[in-house]
Simulated assay, not measured.
Amino acid sequence: MAALAELDVPLPPIIVHRASMRVIDGLHRLRAAQLRGHHTIAATFYDGTEADAFVLAVESNVRHGLPLSLLDRKRAAARIIATHPQWSDRKIASVTGIAPGTVADVRRSAVAGTPGEDVARIGRDGRVRPVDIAEGRRRAGQLIAENPDLSLRQIARAAGISPETARDVRNRLSRGEEPLLPPRPRGVRPRPRKEMLKVVPRPGHGEGRPGPAAGTAFAEGLSAVNRLKADPALRLNETGRQLLRLLSVHMLPPGEWEGIIDTVPPYWSGTVAHLARECAHIWEEVAARVEKNIARGNDSPASPADSSACPTM
C-alpha cells in the first residue's frame, strides 16, 4: 500500500459490488488513495449477485493481486462449488488458480447439491457437458447411425460431448464396436497422458529418427501447395490468398514440428494440446465440406494428384 501511495500516477479503478458496496478488487489501491489523502477514487460498479461477486474477487486476485495461499484457494474453490455446483472442475480451476484434480478432490469432500442433480456441468467455454459421458456416447452413436453425414461438431453439440469423443465413437462404430468404452478392471489406473501421445522424436536419436514416409508426405504436401499457389483462381483474390497462407503455415518439415513441440512449457501443454485439437477439428470440417461440394459437382477443376494431406507428427 505504501508503494502504491508513492506512485505519481493515477491508480486504476477499483471494482465495487453495487448492492453491498464491498470492494471486489482494489482494496490495496483504496488504502493507497487514503494514504495520499484523497477523498474519492475511480470505481467500476458490479451489479451481479454476491456469489458472482466472490467469483470475480477470487479471479481478479489470482490474475494480478497478492497471491493467495493454496489453502485459501482451496477454500475459495469449496465456496464456489457450493454456489456454482453446475460449473466444471476445469472452469473453477481457471478461476481459483489450482489444478482441476485438486478441485475434484475438494468437490468430493464437500457437500454440494443433491445427489442425482449433478448430471451436467458448464465448462470454461460455456458449453454444457454431461458428467456421465456414457449417455453422451450412446446419444452420439444413435445420431451417427441415423445420419452418417453429420459433422463431428454437429454430433458433439447434439450429444453434449467433445468433438474428440464424437470422433472416437465414430471410429469405434466403423470398426463394428460399441460406442461405449469397455469398463476398466478394478484397481487398474489409466496410463499417464504422456504415454498415450505419439510424437516423432528428434532426428539423430537412433530409431526415433523420422522415417522416409514422413519426409515423403511432407514433400508431396508441399508440392501440392505450390501447385495451388500457381492457380490464378486462388492467388488473384483475397479469400484464395488467405487459404494459401493457412495451408503454407501448416506445411512444416517434421523436424520443425518437433522443435515447436519442445518449446511448449509443461504448464501450457494442456492448453496447446486443446487448441491444436480444435484446429484439427476445424480443418476436418473444411475437408468434409469441400468433399461434399465435390459430390455435388461444385468443385473447380483440379488434378487428382492434388489430394495430398498435411503431414502428421
Rank of each mutant, 00 (worst) to 15 (best):
K91D: 08
A99F: 11
V106K: 05
R90M: 12
A78F: 06
V106E: 08
A76R: 04
V106D: 06
P85L: 07
I80K: 00
R73T: 09
Q86N: 10
P100I: 11
T96V: 15
P100H: 08
T83G: 03
I80A: 15
L71G: 08
I98L: 15
V95C: 13
I80S: 03
T102V: 15
A93M: 06
L71D: 06
G101R: 10
P85R: 06
A93S: 07
W87Y: 15
I92R: 01
L71H: 08
T83E: 11
D72K: 02
P100W: 07
R73Q: 11
V103T: 13
G101T: 10
R75E: 09
I92Q: 05
W87K: 11
R79D: 10
A82V: 06
K74G: 12
D105P: 03
S94L: 07
R90G: 14
A82Q: 09
D72L: 03
I81W: 01
V95G: 01
G101P: 02
I81P: 00
A77M: 08
P85E: 00
P85D: 08
A76C: 11
T96M: 05
I98F: 11
R90W: 00
R75D: 12
A76F: 10
L71Y: 04
A76E: 04
R79E: 14
T102E: 15
G101H: 07
A76Y: 05
A104K: 13
T102A: 15
R73I: 09
V95I: 14
R75W: 06
D72W: 00
D72Q: 14
D72V: 01
V106F: 12
I81D: 00
A99T: 11
K74A: 14
P85F: 11
V95E: 07
S88K: 04
G101C: 08
T102N: 12
T102C: 13
I98K: 10
K74M: 11
A104W: 14
D105F: 12
D72M: 03
H84I: 01
I81G: 02
A93Y: 04
R90I: 00
I81M: 07
R90F: 01
D72N: 01
V103E: 12
D105N: 14
I80F: 01
T83K: 00
S94D: 13
Q86F: 15
G97T: 05
T96Q: 01
A76N: 10
S88R: 05
T96W: 01
D105T: 15
A104S: 15
R75C: 08
H84C: 10
V95D: 02
W87S: 09
L71M: 06
K91I: 00
V103H: 12
S88H: 02
R90L: 13
W87N: 05
S94F: 01
V103A: 13
A76S: 14
A77Y: 06
A82M: 04
I80W: 00
S88D: 07
Q86T: 09
R90C: 05
S88F: 02
I80M: 14
